[in-house]
Computed example of a mutant assay.
Amino acid sequence: MVDTGYCVEMARYNAWQNRQIKAALKTLTEADLTCDRGAVFGSILGTLNHVLWADTAWMARFTGGAPPRVGLEESPDFTDGPGAWEIARFRRDAAILHWAERLRNVELGGTLSWTSAATGRTETKSRALCVVHMFNHQTHHRGQVHAMLSQAGAVPPVSDLAFMPEGAGIP
């Protein structure tokens, strides 16, 4: 069963991973970050932007906040470069953790309906499943970034949840 403890742990994991990725990005040039590497969203930065875009969309659905200002097709260009991504990512990670820490188990019940950018239809799914999906989506695409960082010559971060340090993830 998905509960608030899971949400907090995954929000911490997400922030920890993104802080490590930020450090790895600093070892590369902007050309390295924007080079098309054959991934679904092209480059390292394009993939990271897509994850940030998706997190913004999911949090808008969960909280009633503002959705992304661009559509799915434009998600690889969600920010104007590595510096803008870093600032926006830090803010989004803090917002996700803040949301998770204040979440109540009862809020994970029921369903969520939204118009999907991927299918173009109104979708209705279990709210808990949608939360799991958001965190799984982050992990999936960070795996792609991990591989692209290796291709670019950077040392990819430790990604094992079991090795997350206590207190990690707090922005």
Rank of each mutant, 00 (worst) to 15 (best):
E9S: 14
I96N: 05
A84Q: 12
G110N: 06
S126G: 15
A24D: 08
N136D: 08
A60L: 09
G110R: 14
C130P: 00
T34E: 13
G81W: 12
V2L: 15
T34C: 09
R121H: 14
K125I: 10
D36L: 04
V132C: 14
V158F: 03
H137R: 06
V155K: 15
H141D: 11
R89W: 06
H141V: 03
L103S: 14
T139Y: 01
I21E: 12
N14L: 07
E86N: 09
S150T: 11
A88Y: 05
A15E: 02
G169D: 03
M1A: 14
S150K: 12
Y13R: 02
L28M: 08
N105R: 13
L129W: 06
R104S: 09
L161D: 02
M148H: 11
R19D: 09
D93C: 04
L129M: 03
H133F: 10
M59D: 03
D80R: 15
V2H: 09
Q144S: 10
W16H: 04
A57Q: 13
E123P: 05
I44W: 06
T56P: 05
M134F: 01
M148C: 08
A24W: 04
I21M: 06
V155L: 05
P165Y: 00
S150H: 09
G5I: 10
A39H: 00
T122L: 07
Q144R: 01
K125E: 03
L52S: 06
M10Y: 12
G169K: 06
L48Q: 08
N105F: 04
G83P: 00
F41V: 11
M1G: 15
L72G: 09
